[in-house]
């Protein structure tokens, strides 16, 4: 039996290096913290990294492609996180290429996972080719990870177009829920007029905001140790990811990180009005 509330969430961006894997790990870990049985699936065939970010790289025996090609069953390939009994990962293959993914194979695995898990977080590869299209096709919701930077915003706009047309829900005439997650945000640079503000990005992309993850040393610290940010020590980034998960679950959260940029924004506005006079 498929869990009735089971949700497939794709973490995607178009552009590489904006924080998809960090985000997938952080969201997955926080959902598990909150008691939801969660699996994070690495769709980046050939360039797997989720295992490294989640600190289970030495425990990978079978992978996604092995399961698709029936060399192993799903239970053999799933790795349970040592820190949470609710968290699992399905690693990508390191050796095959992205063509090893078939739509039928992916569907079969996701259907199996829906029987066991409340949340299936799909970590998409960069680009808009096969691997990325596979990762998003069966999604119920999408988290669009964006940096406040021109190439990332443009690519996010592209991927939003793809999400509107090339998912199963889109083919059935429905729109999937899309969330904007702004990462590597630096309020002080925004205030100085050196970085696109959250309002700028929202105005261009026109999808609801899930959260703002500040540029933070905690992110590299966490990846160095193979610990998802939300399993790590208290930090601004951890707090921001926790707030994002709360919103993903439909809670209304007044963001503390937003307080920072709101007051700075007000400061900026005051400066602006002064110079206007």
């Amino acid at each position: 039996m498929v869990k009735p509330n089971s949700k497939v969430i794709v973490v995607t961006s178009g552009k590489g290096g904006v924080g998809k894997t960090t985000t997938s790990a952080a969201l997955g870990a926080e959902l598990a913290n909150r008691g939801y049985k969660t699996v994070v699936v690495d769709f980046d065939i050939g360039l797997r990294n989720l295992d490294l970010i989640m600190g289970c790289e030495r425990r990978v025996i079978f992978d996604f492609v092995n399961v698709i090609q029936k060399d192993a069953n799903l239970a053999q390939a799933l790795i349970r996180d040592k820190r949470s009994e609710n968290l699992y990962i399905l690693p990508a293959s390191q050796t095959r290429d992205k063509d090893a993914l078939t739509r039928e194979g992916v569907e079969e695995i996701l259907t199996e996972l829906r029987k066991e898990f409340d949340f299936i977080v799909c970590d998409s590869p960069a680009g808009i080719e096969r691997g990325a299209l596979m990762a998003l096709y069966f999604a119920d919701e999408a988290v669009v990870v964006t940096n406040p930077e021109v190439s990332s915003v443009r690519d996010s706009d592209r991927i939003i177009g793809v999400l509107n047309s090339r998912t199963r829900h889109a083919e059935q005439g429905h729109e999937i829920k899309k969330h904007l997650l702004l990462t590597r945000y630096s309020p002080s640079r925004v205030q100085r007029g050196e970085m696109l503000s959250v309002e700028d990005v929202q105005e261009i992309l026109a999808i609801p905001l899930l959260g703002i993850i500040p540029e933070s040393p905690a992110v590299l610290n966490a990846s160095n140790q193979g610990v998802p940010v939300t399993f790590g020590a208290v930090s601004d980034a951890k707090r921001a990811y926790q707030d994002a998960v709360a919103r993903l679950l439909g809670e209304v959260v007044e963001d503390t990180s937003q307080k920072g940029w709101k007051s700075m924004l007000l400061g900026g506005l005051r400066l602006f009005s002064r110079s206007a006079v």
């Binding site: 021109v150 925004v190 007029g193 970085m195 696109l196 700028d200 261009i204």
Partner: peptide
Amino acid sequence: SAKMARERL
């Protein structure tokens, strides 16, 4: 530069 970024985008 942020303003330029917004306009170009």
